[in-house]
Design a protein around this nucleic acid. Sequence first.
DNA 1: GTGAAAGCGCTAACAG
DNA 2: CTGTTAGCGCTTTCAC
Lengths: 335, 335
Amino acid sequence: MIGRPTMNDVASDAGVSLKTVSRVVNNVATVDPELVAKVFASIKSLGYRRNGIAASLRAGGETRMIGLITEDLSNTFYITLASAVAKVARARGFQVIMASSEEDPEIERELALDLCQRRVSGLLVVPTSADHHYLQAEMDLGVAVVFIDRPGSGLDADAILVDNQGGARSAVERLISNGHRRIGLLMDSLSIYTMRERLAGARDALAAAGADDDPALLVENVHAPDDAASAVRAMLDLAEPPTAILCGNNRSTIGAVEEVWRSRASIEIVGFDDFEMSRLLPQPVTIVDYDTSALGTRAAERLFDRIDGIASEPFEQLLPTHLVDRGVSWALAPS
Amino acid sequence: MIGRPTMNDVASDAGVSLKTVSRVVNNVATVDPELVAKVFASIKSLGYRRNGIAASLRAGGETRMIGLITEDLSNTFYITLASAVAKVARARGFQVIMASSEEDPEIERELALDLCQRRVSGLLVVPTSADHHYLQAEMDLGVAVVFIDRPGSGLDADAILVDNQGGARSAVERLISNGHRRIGLLMDSLSIYTMRERLAGARDALAAAGADDDPALLVENVHAPDDAASAVRAMLDLAEPPTAILCGNNRSTIGAVEEVWRSRASIEIVGFDDFEMSRLLPQPVTIVDYDTSALGTRAAERLFDRIDGIASEPFEQLLPTHLVDRGVSWALAPS
DNA sequence: GTGAAAGCGCTAACAG
DNA sequence: CTGTTAGCGCTTTCAC
């Protein structure tokens, strides 16, 4: 015997027809128990394994796979997402192909098309900021597409998003109600959708309260913790330093806390995105938190709705944020 | 036109044979440029997309996919692993199907067999502690299997592991050379391979130095940080409390540090497994660290070696550990 | 250089 | 209840 045994091999070994083997393998009830036993015996003795590829080809391309494209697989955010997606998929008997675009729109495109060529039933995409027009053809051919965390551009597809504006607004409102009027804003590049939204929300709240929107209090392109630390350093050196700081993501929160703590300044900090060890931060910090897992779950559910053929206008769903208190427990120095 | 256009549709539209389309799609050089142009035009106008499933069926089942089965996709350790694996796979034009066994041997089995049925070329498995005999048939049929972090049982396959014994040994040696003789050991369940190895390494070093191996200084089944905290609490209440503690994983390190800090005890702590925020720990801690990314990279490389047909005896590769200092920076209380 | 025929391993029709 | 006949969309002979 060369190569894997096929259904045909099993059929001749068991002395039944190909179709009977197929029925047995697919648990069709209406087969003579005696034949079933014979077939199973041959399957076992030959070491037969059903070829899912061939089956799905004949069955019209149902691969029971979905693709998940994120920017960076090593980031906990995407992982929580992936984990939630995998759970929903598993419940449906689907497998998940995960791929990282490494924040490169070109790679994202290649991956998406590769996955489509592998005939995934649907595609979950955390989009890089680029055009997604190229997916239109695939959508027209029946591939479901749902964007996560950021809307896609140039493509009318569903998107499950976080209410970034609302989160930033409530964060700034809390600071203002705590008496702050000068609030520093640390944002990553404004080419990132979430950053634009968060900034817009913050400014909304500042404007509503008539608080300062001083250009010196906004620093962009804060990417790494160290960037945040130096941005804070610079703000503290201003003639009128801020009394509170809003951090656009968890990396900047870490850097900001580090610098504030180091300089013994009295600055209230609110940051976006909770993280595992935020309780260890050495001063009280308020975090704009949201349920990343729910983001993945909702997106996957929506994708399966589309795969099931539920037709409706493409829509955006916003997931709520909430403020949580972090960082106190370690703040108590040993006496 | 109903459904997706096929190669046949393109062929008749372009007025060439099916095979010519196939050649063009597969970049075969020896095609008349004029025909190539015609074919491309038809492909574009019909919106043709190559069906990778059908291609791989005829080509003998080469799906250019590998499977990765871990215990828990939401854990950073597995993610770092997954990310490294995905990178190696991408360089080869392979996609990765990731699935979580949720620490259930039965699920692991189902997933592995499902992935084999989908004809992955290879399987990377972080095994739960169970029998992997069921994979033997798949291996015999040519599916490559490499275990990561823990050896599989009942199956002669490659395994890429961390030198847990060596790491624990050097950790205890350091403690001993720092003058400690009574060293508390916090381990998770000894049904976990890594825990058994780490404990064995620690005992080696204790025995070599003639230090105490007091049963009261070993606590098993330390799973969550809180378990570690109470274990430490109990040890501190001993008539002869330990002066140092070795923690079997990062969760127990967090709990142990918390309790030691809270009780103001003077205990030197060494823990296994570095983690993102370990620098924030409020007292100096030594961590037995290792390169998780390398674990994934090596495993994937090994898998592709096997996929490429490199024949050699199944082998185990141990990756080294090293001690790193963590936790000082935040220890300075504000004055 | 190009094309007709065969068939990868399976399932969907239909007939028996 | 079972078997025969097609054919999924593509690639691989092997002629032309």
